[in-house]
Every structure is written in C-alpha cells, then in structure tokens.
Simulated assay, not measured.
Amino acid sequence: MTHILQIETTSKNSSVSIGTDGKLNCLCEEISPDFKHSENLHTFILWALEGAELELKEIHAVAIGMGPGSYTGLRIGLASAKGLCFGNDIPLIALNSLHFLAYPYFRQEYEFIIPIMDARRMEIYTTIFNSKGDMIEKTHPHILNKHSFENYRNKKILFIGDATVKTENFFQDHNLNFEQASFILSYPSAKNMSQLSYEKYQQKGFENVAYFDPLYLKEWGK
C-alpha cells in the first residue's frame, strides 16, 4: 500500500491528510481567519498519522499544495514538506491548489469550472477547467473588470473558491450577466489531494526537494 502525507496551506485552511492508494485515509484541518498554519501544521501532521494508524517511516511521499495563494502559508507548508522529505529520504509531490479545489466538480453538470482565490483588492488567482477536468487556461492573477470571463457568460459554469463573494458582488455591481453561473465559497483542502497525488506518485512525478519553489505568481506584499 502507498501512503502519502498531504499538506495544504495556501489559504485560511490549515489542512493535512493521509492518502492511501489514492483514497482519503485521514484528514485534519481547521479554517481560521488568523492563518494559524505555523501553530497547527505540526500538530495536524501528528494527528493525521495517528488517525491513519501509521508511523512517519511508513509514509512513501509528501504532497504539497503548491499554490497559488498566501505567500506566508506557502512558505510554511513547503518548509515542513521539504523537512519531512529530507529527513525521511522520501520524494516530494507538488499539486496545483486550484486543480484539487476544482477536482470534485469535474464530470458533473457544469460546462466549465473556474476556481477563484482571493489575491487582495480586486485581484484573484484563477484558471479554467472544462467539464472533463482539462485545464484550458494557465493559472494566473487576474484583476476583475467588465470583461472578466466574458467568453463564458452564456455557459453553465461554477465559480469556486474564497473569492466567490467578491466576484459575484462585482458582477452584480457592474450589471454583468452570468445567469447560469453558480458560486460556491470553498477553500483548497488536503481531502481532495489523494487521487491526484497517487497518480503523480505512480508516474514518478517528483520535484527536486532542494530547489522546488511554490507557485507564488505575485511578489510578497503586492
């Protein structure tokens, strides 16, 4: 059996899980407006291992949510992941946090799934997936404007993330018509990483532990 420790710290959600052969085994997470990653992460790792009835030496890899998202959260999560990989001589797997945020909604009733995470002011981090889960736009920062997502306004789409309220309010304030759009407030969670991290493990899609950097997209403080 393949056990992967999974860490996600790109938003207000401190999230740790254990995936076993692509299935969720154990999950520990807390959503806090105070971004308590530095306080929670080590404890959640221990709790997840305990809940899965595993020891650290039984973990085959560490998977990290690589962003985009909180600069500080990314640094805390990646530092922990790298430390575990170095200390236990196991590989590092990186997953786009917007990918596994959208992942549970692939192959459902939506034509397009658009994850949107807050990037301060009127800016968001986003990408676009079709219903099959193919990424059709590169992950990028985007400033909301009257032309935002205009090619999808007559489509059945799902906006999901922590910027949904801001985005929906912007559309309404500027009379932008997205009649078929749904909006779900959500945060990236390690509970949705198991299948994707297991697939990467099987493909040996590992990162260079020493040199890997997360998907910042923006400089700190901007």
Rank of each mutant, 00 (worst) to 15 (best):
residue 2 T to V: 15
residue 2 T to K: 12
residue 5 L to H: 03
residue 6 Q to W: 03
residue 9 T to F: 01
residue 10 T to R: 01
residue 11 S to L: 07
residue 11 S to T: 15
residue 11 S to E: 06
residue 18 I to F: 02
residue 20 T to L: 08
residue 23 K to A: 07
residue 23 K to W: 11
residue 23 K to D: 09
residue 31 I to G: 06
residue 33 P to Y: 01
residue 34 D to H: 11
residue 34 D to N: 14
residue 34 D to C: 04
residue 35 F to K: 14
residue 35 F to I: 09
residue 36 K to P: 00
residue 38 S to D: 07
residue 38 S to V: 14
residue 43 T to L: 15
residue 43 T to R: 07
residue 45 I to H: 00
residue 46 L to Q: 15
residue 46 L to G: 05
residue 47 W to I: 03
residue 49 L to S: 08
residue 50 E to A: 14
residue 54 L to R: 06
residue 54 L to S: 08
residue 57 K to I: 13
residue 57 K to F: 02
residue 60 H to Q: 13
residue 61 A to N: 04
residue 64 I to K: 06
residue 66 M to D: 02
residue 67 G to R: 05
residue 68 P to F: 06
residue 69 G to N: 14
residue 70 S to A: 13
residue 73 G to S: 12
residue 74 L to S: 10
residue 75 R to D: 08
residue 78 L to A: 08
residue 82 K to W: 10
residue 85 C to Y: 06
residue 85 C to L: 09
residue 85 C to R: 10
residue 92 L to Y: 10
residue 93 I to T: 06
residue 94 A to R: 00
residue 96 N to D: 15
residue 97 S to D: 11
residue 97 S to E: 12
residue 98 L to R: 00
residue 100 F to G: 11
residue 103 Y to W: 05
residue 105 Y to F: 15
residue 106 F to D: 09
residue 107 R to L: 14
residue 107 R to K: 12
residue 108 Q to M: 13
residue 109 E to W: 01
residue 109 E to Q: 13
residue 111 E to F: 01
residue 111 E to W: 07
residue 113 I to C: 06
residue 113 I to F: 01
residue 115 P to F: 06
residue 116 I to F: 08
residue 116 I to L: 05
residue 117 M to V: 12
residue 120 R to W: 10
residue 121 R to F: 08
residue 121 R to P: 04
residue 125 Y to I: 08
residue 125 Y to A: 01
residue 126 T to L: 03
residue 130 N to W: 00
residue 131 S to F: 01
residue 131 S to A: 10
residue 133 G to D: 03
residue 138 K to M: 11
residue 139 T to Q: 00
residue 142 H to N: 02
residue 143 I to R: 09
residue 144 L to T: 01
residue 147 H to Q: 13
residue 148 S to P: 07
residue 149 F to E: 05
residue 150 E to Y: 08
residue 155 K to C: 11
residue 155 K to R: 11
residue 155 K to A: 09
residue 156 K to R: 15
residue 157 I to D: 03
residue 158 L to F: 03
residue 161 G to E: 08
residue 165 V to Q: 10
residue 166 K to Y: 07
residue 166 K to Q: 11
residue 166 K to N: 04
residue 168 E to L: 04
residue 169 N to F: 03
residue 170 F to V: 02
residue 172 Q to G: 02
residue 173 D to N: 14
residue 173 D to Y: 08
residue 175 N to L: 11
residue 178 F to M: 04
residue 179 E to F: 02
residue 179 E to T: 09
residue 181 A to I: 05
residue 181 A to E: 09
residue 182 S to F: 03
residue 183 F to H: 00
residue 183 F to Y: 14
residue 184 I to H: 09
residue 187 Y to P: 07
residue 188 P to G: 05
residue 188 P to E: 10
residue 189 S to E: 08
residue 189 S to C: 12
residue 191 K to M: 12
residue 193 M to E: 09
residue 204 K to G: 04
residue 205 G to Q: 15
residue 206 F to C: 11
residue 206 F to Y: 15
residue 207 E to G: 06
residue 208 N to I: 10
residue 210 A to R: 11
residue 211 Y to E: 11
residue 212 F to Y: 15
residue 218 K to Y: 01
residue 220 W to Q: 14
